[in-house]
Structures are given as structure tokens and as C-alpha cells.
Amino acid sequence: MKILIELPTWLGDCVMATPAIENIVNFDNDVKITFIGSFVAIEAMKNHQKVFKTVVLDKKYGVLYKITRELGEFDAFFSFRSSLRTKFLKFLISAKNKYQFDKNKYQYRHQVEKYNDFINDSLKSNFPAGKLVLHADNLKLSINNSSLPILGINPGASYGSAKRWHPEEFAKVASELSGQYDIVIFGGEDEVDIVMDIEKLLLEKSVKNYQNLAGKTTIPELINHISHLDLFITGDSGPMHVAAAFEVPTVAIFGPTKDDETSQWMNEKSLIVKKNLDCQPCMKRTCPLGHHNCMNLIKAVDVLDSVKSL
């Protein structure tokens, strides 16, 4: 059975779609999957055991037409995106059955459940939403051949500045835990400056057992490194969901987003830190009230108390 799957654009959403993708496999184990999607999504999913082909999606409609002509025919097409461009893609794809996620239909539940319900409705099945599934290489990260457990710090969030906790507070937490853990700081290419601020503060506190990986890892490398962490402290982000896939003990800091919809899925070693303000969750990329209190009021001690609880 030949299946074409358009993946969600963002890393976190892509990870949260994996239980639904596994249930497509559960429906017919003899499948050959072609993944199409953003570069990030393809990099995250290219090692799936049922993958036959991967295609990075070009945003230009003319290129999109050419790609669909080259893909050939499929038994089914599933898209986890509800965009207008996907409607165009759905029209162009040659498949016996075509299904597209509708974000307006699937609401008020965890994102994993939204995607899984979409697949169940499409296949007329009743599969439960299982665990997140990612494939990582078995290459453990070490710092100066140290035997200490490894703490991962992830200060960035691609959604917008409103989701980011302050570098000063991250540095306080990392400094406090540096005697118990070696530290790895993660970040994308557009988050290098934030991580450099944390690095500068750590050096001022004479903390040297850290490694700055911001802007230096591929998506498969990021997944591999996170899979070997002993503790992860992060905002609501793609790497947070990667950590959930490997059940890494995690403290997740939430501000303007809906933790009931995008918290870590099926990770019993996860705690959420948030302030439960009347203005939460606003779901805005920047604070509409201008005070950013959902993040400003969270202090290092709040996160450290959660670490102790874990």
C-alpha cells in the first residue's frame, strides 16, 4: 500500500503527529510511506522504518505542480496541515483516497489527540493515541569525558518572543545545577544570541562544564542529543516534544500557550511551571498587554523547586 503523508511544518507538531502516523501503519502494516513537508519535518522523520521516499516541499505553486507530477500515484494521501496550499496539493495529488486535517473541526483536546482523531475518522478506525515515536542514533554526548549526568537547557521558541523565558533566569538555574550536571545549551540559528547571553552569564559565575550547541546541530543530531539527556529544562517548543518522545525528565515553562493542548505527551517525568494568570493563555507571539508577566513572574527558584520534585 503506497501512502503519501504531508507532515506538519513545525518540529513540535511533527513529533505530536507520530502516534497518528503509527496508527496508519497499524491499519496496514504493509505500507510504503512517502513523506512530504518542510525541511525540518523531513529531517525529523526520514529515519522512520516504513519510509520509502522523502520530499522537501517547495512553497512555490509552480514547483508544487511539478513535484506532484513526479510523485506518481498513491493509494491514500493524508495531510496534517489545513492550509490553502495543502488544498491545492490535495487537488494535484493522484490518490484513490485523500484526507486533509481541519483545525476547525478538531479542537479542545491535546494536539496529539487532534491528529489521532483525524486519522481515526479518515480510516474509520478506533486506534488510541499511543506514545510519540522518533528514531535516534545511539551516540551519547559527553563533556570533557565527564561522568556527570547531562542537563539540557533550551531557551528558544520559534513561535515568538512571548514563549521565551529570560536568559538571566536560565543562567541562574544552570549555575545552581552545574555541580550536579554537565550542561548542554540548545538553540536554533536564530537563537544564537540568546544562548550567548546565557553563556556569558555562566562564565561570570565561573561555570565551565557546559557546551553551547546553538546553531550547530542538524535536526537528527538534536534528536540524538536530547534522547540521551538526564534532565531537560525548556520552554514550550519543538525540542520539548522531542524530549517527551524519549521520556526525558523535563521541566517545561509555559507562558501564553495552552499547556492542555501542547504539553508533553505521555511523559510521566514531566512537570509544568506556569503562573495561571487571568490573561493566560493569549496564544499571541508577543505580549498584547506589554508586560509579559506570564514569563516575567516565573523565577529560577520556581524551576529549581520543580527539578527537586522530579
Score class of each variant (00 low, 15 high):
I272H: 03
S263M: 10
E268L: 07
S270E: 04
V251K: 07
S270N: 05
D259I: 09
T262D: 04
A243Q: 12
T262E: 05
E268V: 04
I253V: 14
E261D: 04
V248S: 08
A245F: 01
M240L: 14
G238W: 13
C279Y: 02
M240V: 07
N276F: 04
D278L: 01
T250P: 00
A252F: 05
F254E: 10
I253G: 03
E261W: 13
L271H: 08
M240D: 01
T257I: 03
A244S: 15
D259L: 10
T257G: 02
A252W: 08
A245P: 05
T250H: 09
E247F: 02
C279W: 00
K258E: 14
I272G: 02
G255W: 10
V248D: 08
K275A: 07
T250R: 12
D259Q: 10
V273F: 08
E261A: 11
M266H: 11
E247Y: 05
K258V: 10
M240F: 10
P256A: 13
P249N: 05
P256G: 12
E247N: 09
N267I: 08
M266T: 00
A243M: 12
F246A: 06
Q264W: 00
G255S: 11
P281N: 15
V273G: 02
S270I: 00
E247K: 08
N267T: 06
K269H: 15
M240S: 13
T257Q: 01
C279P: 02
V251G: 01
P256Y: 09
P249T: 04
A243K: 09
I272Q: 02
H241T: 09
M240E: 07
F254L: 12
T257E: 06
P281H: 09
T250V: 09
F254D: 12
V242P: 15
K275D: 00
D260K: 02
V242D: 08
A243W: 11
V251I: 15
A243L: 14
C279N: 03
P239L: 08
M240R: 11
W265G: 01
M240K: 13
T262F: 14
A245C: 06
A244C: 15
E268G: 12
P239Q: 07
F246R: 04
S270A: 15
N276Q: 02
D278E: 04
V251R: 10
N276A: 01
I253E: 03
G255M: 11
V251A: 11
D259E: 15
V242K: 03
K269E: 14
N276S: 04
E247G: 00
F254M: 12
V251E: 09
P256C: 13
A252S: 15
K275Q: 12
G255I: 11
A244N: 09
D259W: 03
K269S: 14
K269L: 12
V242M: 06
H241D: 14
V242W: 01
M266I: 02
N267S: 13
P249E: 12
M240W: 10
L271C: 02
G238Y: 10
T262M: 07
K269N: 15
M266A: 09
